[in-house]
Amino acid sequence: MSPAATSSSHPTEGDRSPVVYATDVTKVYTRGSGPGRVGKLLGRPEPPSVTALDKISVAIDAGEIVGLAGPSGSGKSTLLHLLAGLETPTAGTVQFQDQDLETLSRRERIRLRLEHVGIIFQHFHLVDSLSARANVSLPLVELGMGTRKRRERSEALLTRVGLEDRISHRPGELSGGEQQRVAIARALATDPTLIIADEPTGELDTETGQRVLEEFKRIATDRAVVLASHDQPTLEIADRIVQLRDGTRVEATQADT
């Protein structure tokens, strides 16, 4: 079943077919372990829980950038993790190209992330001992791609993000902006249909951040991008903004339409 064929029955918010959509997702975190049978008999209380997300629905189409806005603790990162298949919801469903992530095994979710999801972090998280090319190549090793093809693809991606003269440099030899562009190239390595970015400009100065955001605009042409940020200029590149507060969706705005 293609997303296009089912988009009308799902909470899509644009005209294009959704790559991923969450329906009434709730995520509750429990602090500590439960009391157990004996504990219950002894009257031990249930551990406290926190509702990070409460019945959130959102759909992300291919070719659009969706911004997640909200203060710290509003549930932005939790929603990103659910959309990326890093976590499963306590209630509700997350469907990735019509596959309910909860029906997949852990191994299948890992494979799905490898093939279809690219993740970009605020702190880059590159392997310091490896060159930019080797960092980009790592997910391709997992895909079983041959050495020569890996080299060609990683160099092409680094060229695409403007780092053709930094291919052999290690992360420690690169600026923050350059490292983030290596991270973007790594996220693009497997040609994913969904890019998840958590505060992608949080470590960068304004000018470098703008250059990184330009990359996001370029890569969003044929894939869905979800980025979470506190930063208003960062969110301005989004086609839509989903505003969260205390785990609930408070409003949605069209950023540039």
Partner: peptide, 27 residues
């Protein structure tokens, strides 16, 4: 330990534990 965040990022990206352990054993 110094590489734990980079390893965690790669795990999140979908790189398997066996590849990461192999890489660390190589180191």
């Amino acid at each position: 330990y110094q590489q734990r965040e980079a390893v965690a990022a790669l795990t999140a990206q979908g790189v398997s534990s066996s590849l990461l352990i192999g890489s660390i054993i190589g180191q």
